[in-house]
Each structure stands twice: as C-alpha cells, then as structure tokens.
C-alpha cells in the first residue's frame, strides 16, 4: 500500500466527525473563510458566532443508493458531520456576516468593524 497525502477529511468511519479543510484570507476590510464540505446539505449547515468563537457545522448524509447496487470501491465518507471552530481575534461587524454554499464550499465573509476615527477633543 501507499500512504495518501495528509488530508483531514479522508474516509472517516460512518457517523464520524470530519474536520473540514479551510483557507482563510484577510484584508483590511474583511476576513474570508472557505471551507470544503463536499456532499453536505445546504439545509444542514449551521454557523454560529458565540463570543469570539465561530462554529461551523454541516451534515453529509449517507448516499442513498438503490438496493440493486453493490459498492465495489468506497473512499468517500459515508454519513458524517463536518465540524470546525475558529477563534476570532479581530474586531468584526457581527451584524453583517455573509455566508454562501456553492459547489460544496462554504464561504463566510466577516467584515471588519469600522475603525473608530481618532477624535480630537478641544480644550475650551
């Protein structure tokens, strides 16, 4: 046998939790997370921001195959839960978080909170 590339989301046991892989990029305006969750149902996605912790969850159902099929080769996860949490140390606009799920990728945009302008206080 040959060992595969290291990947978080490879062939877990049925019903296991998958730690999905993520790309994070930051600009002065926003923080963008892209999380691979192939096969997840859009309706199962749950994104929660509690305090500084952003939690992402999603479920992948077991493939419902007709009884006439026999599996001859299986590598993909069966029934699985995607779950990952992030600690956010940036000042973000909590009311304006956008998320989209496209082609099995969950994309979350966190806008940085508008930086308070330094205020000059006049001495009378």
């Amino acid at each position: 046998m040959r060992f595969d590339q290291f990947r978080f989301n490879k062939s877990p046991e049925p019903g296991e939790t998958i730690l999905p892989v993520v790309d994070i990029r930051e600009t002065d305006q926003e923080v963008v997370l892209e999380v691979d969750m192939p096969g997840a149902d859009k309706d199962s996605l749950n994104i929660q921001l509690q305090g500084d912790q952003l939690q992402i969850k999603g479920a992948k159902k077991k493939d419902a195959m007709d009884g006439k099929y026999t599996a001859v080769h299986l590598e993909r996860p069966g029934q699985a839960e995607y779950e990952r949490a992030f600690q956010i140390n940036a000042d973000i606009d909590r009311q304006n978080i956008k998320a989209a799920f496209e082609n099995g990728v969950l994309k979350i945009r966190l806008n940085r909170a508008a930086v308070a302008q330094p205020q000059k206080i006049m001495i009378s």
Binding site: M65, K68, Y69, T70, A71, V72, H73, E75
Partner: peptide
C-alpha cells in the same frame, strides 16, 4: 476520493 457502485 471516489466511490464505485455496480449493478447489473
């Protein structure tokens, strides 16, 4: 990652 299913 791939799965293969067979039927008649």
């Amino acid at each position: 990652a791939m799965d293969v299913y067979d039927s008649k």
